[in-house]
Design a protein around this nucleic acid. Sequence first.
DNA 1: AAGTTTATTCATTTTTTATTGAATAAATCG
DNA 2: CGATTTATTCAATAAAAAATGAATAAACTT
Lengths: 175, 175
Amino acid sequence: MSDSEAGVKLNPFQVETIALFVRAATVLRLPRSVAQIYGLLFTTSDPLSLDDIGDRLGISRGSTFDGIRWLRDLGAVEGVTLPGVRKEHFRAEFRLRTLATGFLRNQIQPHVHNGAAHIRQLRESIDASSPDAAFQKDRLKQIAGWQKFFSRVLPVIKALATKPHFPLPKHPSRS
Amino acid sequence: MSDSEAGVKLNPFQVETIALFVRAATVLRLPRSVAQIYGLLFTTSDPLSLDDIGDRLGISRGSTFDGIRWLRDLGAVEGVTLPGVRKEHFRAEFRLRTLATGFLRNQIQPHVHNGAAHIRQLRESIDASSPDAAFQKDRLKQIAGWQKFFSRVLPVIKALATKPHFPLPKHPSRS
DNA sequence: AAGTTTATTCATTTTTTATTGAATAAATCG
DNA sequence: CGATTTATTCAATAAAAAATGAATAAACTT
């Protein structure tokens, strides 16, 4: 579906920002609608309802709901209850630490954790009496090293995302 | 397609390892065949030809070729010329630094780089005379901050992957 | 409680992505 | 050189993922 239909309800800044997020989502292979929804909320100062969102983006009720759920699970969107208004409304969370933490927690961590169990299983598949055993043990060691790397690098990334001024090569300070 | 057909030509360690890589590829949303090929080469001590690979995995010539090209572009596989053998053969590269560097270079860096140009374009979409201008400038600042974060965090990951004993910053408890 | 609005599910359809394999090109050999 | 093997392309097909929207459930109102 073209964006032109939705475009009439969005200002140029929103159109451009949403396009940027959609490209980013493509890189991360996340659903387009998720990026659209986040982009819309990110560029809208007041919280929006599900209907508001679907209406302005021209996407279906189901996609809107699924997208909001995905974003909320991640911590990228939070629901707000407006006084005297029944429909739940939503607004974007955009602190880097929250986004990074949620993404790592939901999308990455589970797999890294499962990986440890799979490595044990891998070890058992080696036939010690085979002439390949030495070679296979070597490869297994390699995989275990990768696993270790990932389990250590994730907290570092998390820490970097949390600290606004993380220690790195000197750079011109912001004005 | 089921793996059973291919399984008969693979030992248990290979079957398990390939399954592990296929799962990892699913997380990274990379094509299954790429993971299969890498897994096969990783668990085979001697280099294999395109025909060897397609034959043992039960995948087509085209997929095999595409997968090898993808892996070779990344630096995860290297071609070797065996003396007196016409067909080119391939073997897996598995140093973490090479893999990480290649992945970042091919899959991530280009987009981060393009991002900088897109942010400039975004700035021009703000109508300074609109009442939203201040809000939009604020959001733009936010996006620019993310961009900065990514452009700085990538080299760090690269560095961590390169050093076998990387220095884990003693980060103070978050507040 | 019934009536109404809002939230959620999920079987179907659409769209996107990956795979196939026959056709073509390039390389190598006698 | 022509014959043969190997490498590469790409249009067609299959498989996977995302989007749709009508149906159902839950929440709220009077």
